[in-house]
Design a protein around this nucleic acid. Structure first.
Lengths: 109, 109
DNA sequence: CTGATCTATCGTAATATTACAATCATCATA
DNA sequence: TATGATGATTGTAATATTACGATAGATCAG
């Protein structure tokens, strides 16, 4: 046991969950917020901004890259990260249709 | 080590992350989808719908309850779960302002 | 080439998550 | 009261995540 049983869910459910999971850590929320704000991509300034070790930041960046939310390009000795516009907006759409307005008709429960 | 360092992040970042994390599992996505669809609250039918053990479902329900997304009311021998309209719509708003439209000005990277 | 800088990766420890069987608690009904 | 049904809790095993130091690889300045 211990591992998530992805086989029993739909492709969509698994992808939505993976995306949520990627943002399910404050450090990764902070990273994305930074990238959204300073639209000009940041590099390893993140290590100074957040109070985490370089190896840890690198690991978080990797996870965001894995779900496609960000992309990095090598720029000399440093790496330049930024939001992937396409994926970001795609996720935004998916989330919008998941998070529909909900009203408790005839007072459920 | 091993534990998330919540102290170094803002309240908002931690709450947003916690909320994403709660939905960061396909089973919990599936549960919420069920609750959204069959607006009349479901009980332990979830155990049959999803292919997971009763104890596992109960655990997932607990996590959704912890972040306030769902609430359960005892109804005889069974428990009636449903989306918490207030919290749900609140989260929807928060997510909307987080997931802003993003356009790569002057082609970042 | 050498040293400095930046980032990724490896190894590892601590902790958290996922899943299930077994059991407990509660309520409904015979 | 006893029995059955339902859901929560406990205990436990397998796996994943988080964090960091140390190290490796790549690139720039000199």
């Amino acid at each position: 046991m211990g591992a998530t049983k992805t086989e029993i869910f739909t492709e969509k459910q698994n992808r939505l969950a993976a995306m949520m999971k990627a943002l399910g850590h404050p450090a990764r929320i902070a990273i994305v917020q930074q990238l959204l704000q300073t639209r000009t991509c940041i590099c390893g300034d993140l290590v100074e901004e957040l109070g985490l070790a370089q190896a840890t930041i690198s690991q978080h960046l990797k996870e965001l890259k894995n779900v496609g939310l960000i992309k990095g390009t090598i720029d000399g000795t440093s790496v330049c990260y930024c939001i992937d516009e396409k994926v970001w907006n795609q996720y935004r759409t998916i989330l919008n249709s998941f998070f529909v307005v909900y009203t408790e008709k005839n007072g459920c429960c």
